[in-house]
Computed example of a mutant assay.
Amino acid sequence: MKLVGYVNGQGESAIGSLGDADTIVPLATMREFYQDGFRIAERAAPAGEPIKRSGLTLLPVVPETARVFCVAINYLGHAAEAEEVGIARPVVPMIFGRWASTLVVDGASIPVPPREEGLDWEVELAAVIGRPTYDVDEATAMESILGYAVFNDISARQVQLETPQFTLGKNADRSGPIGPLVIDPTLDPHDLNLRTRVNGETVQQGNTRDMVFKLPQVISHISRSVTLLPGDVIATGTPEGIGASMKPPRLMGPGDVVEVEVEKLGVVRNTITKPGSH
């Protein structure tokens, strides 16, 4: 089942399942869904008649209160790229945060910040948390995951690399495209192909089996300090092939179209625009 967020007829944030190419089946408001997403997803009972997707305002499929926990340098190949700019391979999961306000949907435009030469791509698997999780062990950590989504951790490299702190470079306006929430209990998140295309050219590819820290380790590590809440997102890192590590470096500018794809989850496609555009 693939779920999307949208604004319903009452002006509320809502969750629905994708029907055919142009319909959404209402399931619940965003608030109701993340109070008991496991139960709602299991019964998948429509909360109304299917509605046309075209004409709706689509939203990221997580609440505005979501925290986005990103795992830095979590693939061996990407660790080698990071070492070239002086960032050592982490010995425990290296976590930085994104604000939910940076999240956008498939098809949204993404502006280049005014003082950046361009933007970089990072295809990632994202896991969405479905229940409150605190101090969980690795053996049971996966029980907290509600579903998975495609994520593009678009990065403003100039400001990111000015200091050891990633916050500004990872929180540019509208820089976090995230795809539908896929709920599939049979999905193995540690054996999925990932790919990035810019203007149709494949520029990055890898497989989630090459993660340094797998999801059970990451969830357990975060939950020792922070209670993970329903709707929180864990972005699991990107494989090698970022634009900043190409020789010469390559960044995306206005007019470029970036597509990130995770096997079995889908594709998220966005257009880069000039500074200040929305």
Rank of each mutant, 00 (worst) to 15 (best):
Q158R: 04
V104P: 03
A172R: 00
N270C: 08
K274L: 10
E143I: 11
V112A: 07
D106V: 10
Y75N: 06
I129S: 06
A47W: 13
A108T: 05
H190D: 14
D135F: 14
L265V: 01
L265S: 11
A14H: 09
I51K: 06
G37A: 12
G200N: 10
I95E: 13
S223Y: 07
S17M: 07
D191W: 14
K2Y: 00
G241N: 03
P60A: 04
G169A: 11
L3E: 04
T102I: 11
P60K: 01
A149E: 02
F213G: 12
A244S: 13
F213R: 07
A72K: 05
T29C: 08
E240I: 01
A79H: 08
H78Q: 02
I183E: 12
D22T: 07
K170W: 09
D106T: 04
D20H: 08
G97I: 09
I154N: 02
W121C: 11
S101H: 04
A21M: 08
V233N: 03
P114A: 01
I24K: 03
G147C: 02
R209D: 14
Y6I: 02
R174T: 03
Y75K: 02
D191K: 07
L215E: 08
S144A: 15
Y34S: 03
T23I: 05
N193C: 10
D256R: 01
L59C: 12
I234A: 03
V91S: 14
G19Q: 03
R43K: 07
R197D: 07
Q217N: 13
M211D: 04
Y148L: 00
V150F: 09
K264I: 01
Y134Q: 14
A28I: 10
Q160G: 05
E12S: 14
T202Q: 03
Y34I: 12
G5S: 06
G169W: 00
R195F: 05
F166N: 06
L161Q: 04
T140Y: 12
Y34C: 05
T57H: 03
N171F: 06
W121D: 07
T208I: 03
G206L: 01
A156S: 15
G77F: 00
M142N: 13
A141H: 10
L215H: 09
V123E: 04
V257Y: 10
S277Q: 09
I51E: 12
G169Y: 02
R31C: 06
